[in-house]
Design a protein around this nucleic acid. Structure first.
Lengths: 148, 148
DNA sequence: TATTGTTATACTCTATAACTATA
DNA sequence: TATAGTTATAGAGTATAACAATA
């Protein structure tokens, strides 16, 4: 990724550029800290989505993650291969797969979440605690779902 | 994009999710406000990169944009088709193409930048002016290039 | 030999359409 | 008929490898 001097003030101050760089920076940190646990940031999101909920179908999960159900198939495939989640047919409706965290999945969720916390801390490294809280609070308001 | 209730507190508060949503929200706003000018946010970035600089080769431009030179080819192709930029061979080194904004490109840069300002304002709609300034200042510090 | 722009190719991520098994 | 999961396929967006022109 280029530095500010490369870009010039016209582009380097634009919100789109800043958000992209922050997002990309966090993605890189996540890749680094999650590597020991064998999951991607994306997969951690699914583990978090599954945790502490009634077991759900792939389709419900896909909807909550904001992807198509066809996209969900490969994501669950990967997590199942790693034995972090299990598919079982819903007895009440055998068209459905119910997805649940395995014990290993629970453990990975805990460990990977701690690692992700560390990635977030490193992203906000230049901010003191009060500034970090302020940033998070403002970002939450900016990230509100659009009301079109 | 799913709402907070869909996600649950475990995922909806994570920085990665918030940054992604803010970034995506701005991308959607940009698509809307830039449509009348026939350029994408990506293309506006290139127009801004070209503005007020010594003319540069495709490769220099690619480096500053943070993409491969092979990727730059199609981006310049599109802008050239719209007659917003012009390629001309560098007389001093005929391997190179020098890329320059056309008059129409200058005009589009001005108009599209104003539209992008509007998109940024709409993204920050829930913040008052002081909060928006604070958010920008904090984001700049978070978006610092990683010093690995 | 090395570099610039280009093309061909492949890889990732995603969605749409079509298939199957169930309902 | 309609729905859940799946597969095949296609479209972005990106990169790597190879090629022609030039240095």
């Amino acid at each position: 990724m280029p530095s500010d001097e490369d870009l010039g003030p016209q582009l380097s101050g634009r919100l789109g550029y800043l958000l992209k760089r922050a997002h990309l920076g966090l993605a890189e940190l996540h890749e680094e800290v999650l590597a020991p646990f064998g999951v991607s940031d994306r997969e951690l999101a699914i583990l978090l989505l599954l945790d502490g909920r009634e077991p759900e179908s792939q389709q419900q999960l896909a909807h909550r993650l904001g992807v198509d159900r066809t996209t969900m198939v490969a994501l669950i495939d990967a997590l199942e291969r790693k034995e972090l989640v299990a598919r079982r047919p819903d007895p009440a409706d055998r068209r459905r797969n119910v997805i649940a965290l395995t014990d290993a999945g629970q453990q990975t969720r805990r460990d990977a979440t701690r690692a992700s916390d560390e990635a977030e801390r490193r992203l906000l490294h230049d901010l003191d605690d009060a500034e970090a809280d302020r940033f998070r609070a403002l970002l939450r308001r900016v990230a509100r779902p659009r009301r079109d």
